[in-house]
Design a protein around this nucleic acid. Structure first.
Lengths: 251, 251
DNA sequence: ACAAAATCGAGAGCAGTGATCTTGCTTTGG
DNA sequence: CCAAAGCAAGATCACTGCTCTCGATTTTGT
């Protein structure tokens, strides 16, 4: 039928190829409805209607509505991860603190551009259950990115001075062993917290909690992200001065 | 019918009294279903069924399902605010930093005890739109609490040393004028960010994002809340030492 | 190459949902 | 005491997720 019956379509029968095409079309339309009306109004029947097929036919591709949603969740994680990675590679040469901020800003930008998909992955889980383990690899891309930045800083000299009188708790050691065995446990603990706090900032902005509170949200976020970077120990290359960040809490 | 028909029920006719009783019963049953299955599975018909009334009768009390939800949202904000305030008064005499941590812990505890109600107010907005302005007063109770703590610290001597080379941005001045004119703008800016970051931590924990990452979440949260307190400038009364917090980033 | 097996699309149908409308009944208030 | 307003119930509409069956097509085994 279509003109795509070229020479390189030999991988498995034409039926398998049609299957992934239809699957992609379903996800595409679903994503459109998701972006338009949100996850709660995503309707299998409406997707089928828009695609000109019977609603029952959809169940050949996704066993249930929740399965469609988890597929969209994985895609959203990947989309966010890719956006973050792209932003990161574009500032690959910069200091770790700059890279940290760039990645944070990329996360924020993506979230603001795709609020409903963001809500799908970092808002409240839609029906009430948590996503299956298949989402884990896609979800950890941003994790890896930020951990890598701190690791680079730790190896190189962009590193923080962490004169840590901070106790090495057993929990911090556990997390460090799991996530980044080459980093000092207190740094890992702070990093994990910073990760959650980053998404707290994005959450408040995307979900309108900053309405009538913060106006220049771009600048506000940048400052907060910079403080977060400073918090995990990343220092900014200072043109003049002590080499410390702009904000210096404590005595 | 009930035994509550005492002498002080003279306020308005018995019909008005029945109305608020039925309204309360509806909200109670709705809250039960909400806690049991989450907001997406909250069904008007099921509530009516459980209450032994026709589904259409419910619309005399709540014009739509969303109106019921917003009523629950306001209640949830109030419940959280009350829990936080109770926790705060119980440590009224303590140092600001201790009180800060107590309030943060109360927020976390409440969220873990009422995950679905928490998701209603700090997760992604259920249908896709943000709650109307009627929720604002109830929502700001925790805000006021934390601002008050920092204000107390600023007035008293539990205060932070904020040797702020931090620039006073116009946005920070705006927020300070709106939220706490008596506080230095940079403190207000950091406070607002800390607020969002606090709920980022709670979000990750309630929504399972810390699964297989953080195990001893109680201790982890306490440390993070302490760092947040330190971040907004609150210092801990140190038995011995410099008077600084346990964690000292920067040079 | 041909039959058997797996896959697919469509339709009908079930149980459930939010919301509206009409019809009587009860309480209220002049 | 009787009209007016508030209330509950039933029927109904348009919609949802999901299951099942039944032909038609494709793939696969021999």
């Amino acid at each position: 039928m279509s003109s795509t019956q070229g020479a390189h379509a030999a991988t498995q029968g034409a039926r398998a190829r049609a299957r992934i095409e239809v699957t992609a079309a379903i996800k595409e339309e679903a994503r459109r409805q998701l972006a338009a009306q949100g996850a709660s109004k995503l309707s299998l029947r409406a997707v089928a209607r828009e695609l000109g097929m019977a609603s029952s036919a959809l169940y050949r591709y996704f066993p249930s509505r929740d399965d469609l949603l988890t597929a969209l969740i994985i895609d959203a994680y990947d989309s966010l991860g890719e956006a973050a990675e792209t932003a990161h590679t574009q500032v690959a040469g910069a200091a770790p603190a700059e890279r940290w901020i760039a990645v944070c800003a990329a996360v924020r930008d993506w979230a603001l551009a795709h609020p409903h998909e963001y809500a799908l992955i970092y808002g409240s889980p839609v029906p009430g259950y948590s996503a299956p383990d298949t989402t884990v690899p896609a979800a950890s891309r941003v994790w890896r990115l930020l951990i890598g930045i701190v690791r680079d800083a730790h190896r190189g000299n962009g590193v923080a001075q962490w004169k840590l009188s901070a106790e090495v708790t057993p929990e911090a050691e556990r997390m460090a062993a799991d996530l980044a065995p080459d980093l000092p446990p207190p740094v890992v603990a702070v990093l994990v917290a910073a990760f959650a706090q980053l998404f707290g900032l994005v959450n408040f902005e995307v979900f309108g909690q900053f309405h009538r509170v913060v106006e220049d949200r771009q600048a506000f976020f940048r400052h907060a992200a910079a403080r977060l970077a400073h918090h995990v120990g990343l220092v900014f290359p200072q043109p003049t001065g002590t080499g410390d960040g702009a904000i210096k809490p404590g005595s």
